[in-house]
Structure formats: structure tokens, C-alpha cells
Computed example of a mutant assay.
Amino acid sequence: MKPLRHRLFGLLLFIACLPVSAYAQSLSRGDGDLRVMTYNVDEGTDYQEVARASGFQEFLVAVGQTITQVRASNPPERMQALAKQIIAAGPALVSLQELDRWSSGPFDQATSTCGTVTPEFDMLQELRKALSAQGAHYEVAAHAQQYAFPPTPGLILPATFLCVQVVNQVVILARTDLDPSRFQWSNPQSAQFSNSVFLPTPIGVVPLPRAWVSVDAKFNNKAFRFIGTHLESAVAQIRELQGAELRAGPANTALPVILAMDSNAQAAPPPQDVTYVDFIAAGYRDAWSVTFPFLDGFTCCQAQFVNNPQSQLSQRIDLILTLGNIEVQRIVLFGATQASKTASGLWPSDHAGVAAQLAPE
């Protein structure tokens, strides 16, 4: 017989190699559980070409490439698939990121001005419509604008000029079909972080602020604060400062806290991002690592066009953290399997959704 330590190592190795589908099937439907979720819905582009553009002509082409990417990602179809994942999780509260409103309109070359833009995709509206059509009952509990590009000239090669506008939002949705004696929410709050980055472009500097949203809620007469946010992705120092703002601001409360976010702070694989480490050092519990200490639970990221045949999730940055008397009972990934893809072969998002079953005490 093998020594005990060898058998234990083999067992841990077996657990670590289990596919997501083996342990992330569904959440309990018991009467005593609180279900919450975080989901980055994917705005349809990574702005890589815009960030790299060095001259006006290159910038025009980059803007054209950006809106082309968004169109190719088919937000209406993806919002239908994403609504299905939210309904499968059944959360009372959902933290959503990258709910963009994309608009376009004509560009007058003679005067170098943008005409009136009209909406092409409103992801919040499309997601709410999809949820309602599939029988779910949610309302917007809190929302905040993050960054916004004003109507900006672009060029779709070879010769289609246009103007593009985008407004990026973070949102909390709350269920309206739960017994009000069991679940209520109030006190919606939101603000932009004071620490942010700026994007220099050939037509000027564009601020890229981030924001947080929160509500106070009760579930089975147990009160807590639910916070959603989307921290800075490109500049680690700014991300860390935003995390500190969050802990000193909306999370500085006597209530137990549930923080559901795209943190852009890598929890797995190692090395862990400083912002993540800061939260753990401040006493926050990571619901995933509490439940699955030996599983990576990757949540990000599929290919930019979300049409990759096999999943490319390779890091865990979408987190549900708790502070105070909140029991973590179960946690599940959604939108990470082939069955979640749209009929045309798109992933619902470039992220997986994360839903947890919790019990405020």
C-alpha cells in the first residue's frame, strides 16, 4: 500500500484536475439561501487598436475596427444567452459590468464634425428585455456610469466614415418576484473612484474613470450591504488605490458586506495581484477559495470575438468576497461550458459568471 501522504497527494491532484462541469452544476434552491452573482457581460472590444494608434489616420481606422468588433460580437444574441445563465443561477442580486450603450452616426469630412448619433446596442436594455422574455423578474437597483467616449470619428476601410459613441456602466439588478417578507433592498448608492487613468489619443485625452454601486438589503431579516464594481485593468497602482477607496468608502459599514466584482486582480493562478492580496489581508473571505481551495476556478477570458471553439479561460479575476458574519455555502461558474454558447457559436461573454449561495448570520 502506498504511504498515506502519497495517497493524499494523488487525491488532491485528482481534485485539482476536475473540469468545471464536474463540480459547478447548480445552486441549491432551498428556502434559506441567499444567491448573488457577478457577471462581466463583455462590451465587445478590448480597445487594443485605439490604445496603440499613434496618428490621426491610424486612430480613425482603430475606431472603425472597434465598432466592427462590437458588431461582430452580436450583443443582442449574447444578452439572450447571458440572461439564460442568470436565470439558471437565480440570484436575488446581480452585479453587472461592461453594460455598454453603443451609438453611431455620420461624420462630415468637410467640417470634421460628427452628426447626430443613434443607438446601435444598449446592452442593459437588451439584457432586461431578454430576462423578461424568458420569464425572469428583475429591476435596476443601482447604476453608475464609468467611462464614456463622446461621438468620435472613425473609418471602416476602405472608405466608410462614421462617428462612434460609447457609454460604459456598472449595474446592480434585483429580483422583484421574491416574497418581500424575505427579501428587500434599499439605499442605492454609487460614485466614481477618485483614482483613475487617462487615455491619450490623437484627438485629445480621454478620462477612463471606474465606479462602484451598492444597495443595502435584507434576506430572511438578516441585513447586509451588496457592492458591485469593475476595477482598473491596465494600471496596477490605480487598481490598488481603487480597492483602498472601496474599503474606506461603501464597504466601511457596520453591516456585513458582499462584494461582487470584476476585480481585474488575479486571484489564480499565482502570483496573486496586490489588490487581491490587500482585500484578503483586510479580512475579506474569497467565496471561491473557501469552497474550492484546490481549484483555480478560472473566469477570464475568451477571445476578443468570443467565437473561440474551446474555452480559453485562464485566470480568476471575477470575485465574490465577503466581510463579516456571512456563511459561504456554495459557489458556481456559469457561461463557461459549451452548452452555454449561442446558436451561432458565441460565448455569452468573454468572462464566466460567478454565483454564490450565502447565508448572512
Rank of each mutant, 00 (worst) to 15 (best):
T113G: 02
A282H: 08
F219A: 01
A211P: 02
R247N: 04
P3E: 13
A268G: 02
C301Y: 01
P91L: 09
T68V: 08
I203F: 08
P200Y: 07
V36Q: 05
E139M: 06
V117D: 02
G64F: 04
T253W: 08
V328G: 01
V215G: 05
V170N: 13
Q80G: 01
T118H: 11
M37H: 07
S73W: 00
D350L: 04
S73Q: 11
G154A: 09
Q25H: 15
T342S: 13
Q266A: 11
R29I: 09
Q266M: 11
R128K: 14
L162K: 08
C300R: 06
R175A: 09
S103M: 13
D100C: 14
A244E: 14
A51G: 02
P91A: 05
A136M: 07
P271F: 04
T152F: 04
G44H: 08
A148W: 02
T229R: 00
G55R: 12
W347T: 01
E139R: 15
F305E: 03
L323T: 00
L93R: 03
T253I: 12
Y47M: 14
H143C: 01
P75C: 09
T118E: 10
P151Y: 06
G324V: 03
W212A: 05
A336E: 06
R7Q: 14
P91H: 08
S28N: 12
L323D: 01
R175V: 08
A144V: 06
S26C: 08
V63H: 01
P158H: 08
F9M: 14
M1G: 12
L96M: 11
V274D: 11
G10M: 10
A282S: 15
T291R: 10
I86H: 00
R52Y: 06
L313F: 15
Q272H: 04
D122G: 10
V167H: 09
S132L: 13
K218P: 02
P209C: 06
Q304W: 03
Q272S: 13
R101A: 11
R78G: 02
A355I: 07
V50H: 03
S340T: 06
Q80H: 13
A267P: 07
G353A: 15
D262I: 00
Q266F: 03
M261N: 00
Q242S: 09
S349D: 01
F14G: 10
E232K: 00
A144N: 06
A359W: 05
A62S: 14
L34K: 04
Q85S: 03
A51L: 13
I172C: 10
A352H: 01
R210H: 10
T253D: 11
R182T: 14
L259K: 00
L60D: 11
F193S: 09
L11I: 14
T337D: 15
L93M: 14
S181D: 14
V215H: 02
Q146L: 13
L157P: 02
C301V: 04
S263I: 01
D31N: 12
